[in-house]
Simulated assay, not measured.
Amino acid sequence: MRITQLNIYPVKSLRGIALEQATLGPRGLAFDRHWMVVDDVGRFVTQRQLPRMAQVAVRLDAEALVLEHPEVPPLRIALARDDQPRVTTHVWEDQCQGLDEGAEAADWLGRVLGDWKGSGLRLVRFAPDQQRRVDPRYQQGEQAHTAYADGFPFLVTAESSLAVLNEVLVAKGEDAVPMARFRPNIVVEGSAPFAEHGWDALAGDGYRLGMRKPCQRCKIITLDQQTGEAPAPKEPLRTLAGMSLATGAYFGHNATLLDGEDRTIRVGDTLEAETSAG
């Protein structure tokens, strides 16, 4: 197999950044889900609540996180900083400390996104001394942690699985969807469709990823990742649910880093799947 895409999403639920290479860490690819938009009580806000978050472009340069939207000047957030006020943040049932990026960022988000049910929006970054544990029920003796991703540090998807999904969609008279709908970190080619759900691990050049849990999808995959609009409000979620082997809609596989911290992963890398069957 071969890696065809690497993507990071520095701010949870804003647009992603396509990369040619990235540094591997226990919390995922460097800077992935390092920031998050929260409401007044620190609860995470995503495209599930505010689909227009997909309209916010994200860049990283040597000194700053840069958020861009056509209606306002860009917002720059310094990377080399950790003196911000601490706030308690919530992702699903997890609670951890974040660093509040301040009033300028909150004002920028308000101008671009409005509010959420009367609550203001703030930008927080994952506190460097925090560890948000991956649910141990899905581990195999190791300990893993993540930042502001939903639950795992990596999401792996396969080109062949998307091709089959799109064949079914087109046969039903629906439009094919791009891989961007699924917001993966690592995309591979050269595997059988949905074979990723049978892998125990993926091994590359000096690194190994543990494949730990199929990714159950939500309504975000119905949203165009440039506009935030839903061209077919129930697709491809409905079709995917009908194709799944288990109750619910599954696409892609959540993963953790087993070996290779600080190694470089690249588009074009060859990967070998490890299975319990050998």
Rank of each mutant, 00 (worst) to 15 (best):
V187E: 13
L19R: 02
A163F: 06
V37K: 00
L257Y: 03
R266Y: 07
R238E: 09
G268F: 01
R263M: 11
L209F: 11
G114W: 02
W35N: 02
A147I: 09
L6N: 10
V187I: 09
L257T: 06
F31C: 09
E189T: 11
E68V: 13
R263D: 07
R263I: 10
W108P: 09
D107Q: 15
T46A: 10
D259L: 13
R59P: 03
R76F: 08
G42T: 01
G278F: 04
A158F: 02
E235H: 15
P231H: 12
W35P: 00
K234R: 15
L19V: 00
N254D: 10
M1I: 03
D40A: 05
M36V: 08
P70T: 07
R2L: 02
V37Q: 00
A62K: 12
L237S: 07
D129N: 08
A230G: 09
H253S: 12
L123V: 09
V56H: 01
P136V: 08
L155E: 05
L240T: 10
V11Y: 01
G25K: 03
L67K: 06
Q84L: 08
F126S: 11
A127Q: 04
P10A: 00
R132E: 07
A149I: 14
G110M: 06
G120K: 03
V66L: 03
D224C: 07
A255G: 10
P233C: 05
H253E: 13
Q225T: 12
Q55T: 08
V156D: 00
W92G: 14
G118T: 09
A201F: 03
A249Q: 05
S191H: 15
L271M: 01
L14G: 01
I8M: 10
F31L: 14
I8V: 14
D61Y: 11
V267I: 11
D115E: 13
E229C: 06
T157H: 03
S13I: 00
S160K: 01
A105P: 09
I186V: 15
F182W: 10
R217L: 13
V11Q: 02
E272Y: 10
G268W: 08
H197F: 15
R15N: 12
I17M: 02
L60M: 14
L99C: 03
L258T: 05
F126M: 09
Q21N: 07
G228Q: 05
F182H: 13
Y138G: 13
R48S: 14
L209D: 03
I3S: 01
L223N: 06
S244M: 07
L240E: 12
E159H: 07
P136T: 10
D82G: 05
P26V: 11
G42M: 00
R27I: 14
T264H: 02
C96E: 10
V56P: 04
G25I: 02
L240W: 06
D61C: 11
G204E: 00
V91A: 13
Q47T: 12
V91R: 04
F44Q: 05
V124Y: 03
G248S: 15
K219N: 15
P193V: 11
Q21I: 03
W92N: 15
L202N: 02
R2C: 00
T247E: 14
P73Y: 04
A171I: 06
